[in-house]
Design a protein around this nucleic acid. Sequence first.
DNA 1: AGCTTTACCTTGGTATACCAAAAAGGTGTA
DNA 2: TACACCTTTTTGGTATACCAAGGTAAAGCT
Lengths: 222, 222
Amino acid sequence: MGKPATQVQHAETKLRQLILNMNIRPGERMTERHIEGMLGVSRTSVRTALLHLVNEGLVSQQGRGWIVSPIDLDEISQLCTYRKILELGAIGHCTPAIIRSDIAQGEQLLSAAASMTAYEECDQAGYDFHLWIATLSRNDFVIQGVENATLRLRRARWLADDHNRNEWDEHRAIVAALKEADLTKASRLTEDFLQRKRQKLLGVLQEKKKLLTEQGALFFPV
Amino acid sequence: MGKPATQVQHAETKLRQLILNMNIRPGERMTERHIEGMLGVSRTSVRTALLHLVNEGLVSQQGRGWIVSPIDLDEISQLCTYRKILELGAIGHCTPAIIRSDIAQGEQLLSAAASMTAYEECDQAGYDFHLWIATLSRNDFVIQGVENATLRLRRARWLADDHNRNEWDEHRAIVAALKEADLTKASRLTEDFLQRKRQKLLGVLQEKKKLLTEQGALFFPV
DNA sequence: AGCTTTACCTTGGTATACCAAAAAGGTGTA
DNA sequence: TACACCTTTTTGGTATACCAAGGTAAAGCT
């Protein structure tokens, strides 16, 4: 595995893990010195790692002090829209040649997902699929945007216990439409899918909101 | 004016200025210690400022060492596409209520632009207009994306000497279409406009490429 | 001279030291 | 008890010190 070339990267990946696995809860306060002691990395490195995580949206600065970014329903809603715009844009901008060269990889993702069972695996596979769609655009900024949005949504998906094994039928339909070079159909299917997924995600979280809030102060709109 | 609350911000804005004004040329190498001496800010702060500018795309790291991001025609092309996707998405997602509340500001931007003359002013006004469109989405990520794309394109626009005073006629048409709540028309106009602008930008740069490269090593694909 | 080798110096990466501001805690008074 | 005032501690922000890797130039060998 890609071990850390630098101390900053080490601290960064370690912290990202801790945050995504909810070992440090959303909204929780962190101090540079505590992390320094915990990871055995100098405060300088911890600091720049934290700054990186701020760009990724996993960490926020409230006044003086670092907090794990809280789960914000409004932000989630915006992220879903953002991702939808990017993925639809990617589909809309891809050429027959691109589809021809990428379709095999897409089908491979589909078949690989069939045998998935653990949550981690499923989530990763979903991530890969959305990234695959983004890649159709051949646009680094679109890809990075989808990547970042998916990352930011990850904790929320986990909270909502968003397994969705049946979503792969829809994925299959999207790939099929792309294979037939029917971009309109692929766009519509993707839009419907993302719309449904968004509403389900927000719905479940809204429902669990009180419970989750009591349970660990998971929500606050800053 | 908002003077720097912190040394990092000071170094960051100063460096951004120097890069955007081409006082430090694209591709030029920078050392942390040189900047430290130049700005009178400690290397620690300079360093984190540089990291910020890396996320903005104005600075890159090549191996060991910092360089001002070179002007890359392929990157420019991708940025134009990215911006197009976002702005069209913004228009596609805005509601009549949003248009009603924002249209006045849009018209104000148009009338203010009429009396512009200096390049700086025109560029800023164009920036504001695109940002206004992005704001129609009420989506922070879309807005930030357009913001970042516009920033990254700024030096290229300057190199291409992209005054385009007549582009404001097209802007006016877009606002008019929005006012009539004709989103389809507004989308089409915006797409045409951005497409034309992209081709002109790339065309001019392609034409000047040899000249610019000799003149100051402005291009290299890393 | 041409090539290799070695000493030195520059550079980014990291750790530590220092500071001021803000927060926390305690103390005295009304 | 409640509140204001002061002391102490904690915290992020910044500067400096240190290090190892990479590059450069000078010296030495053939």
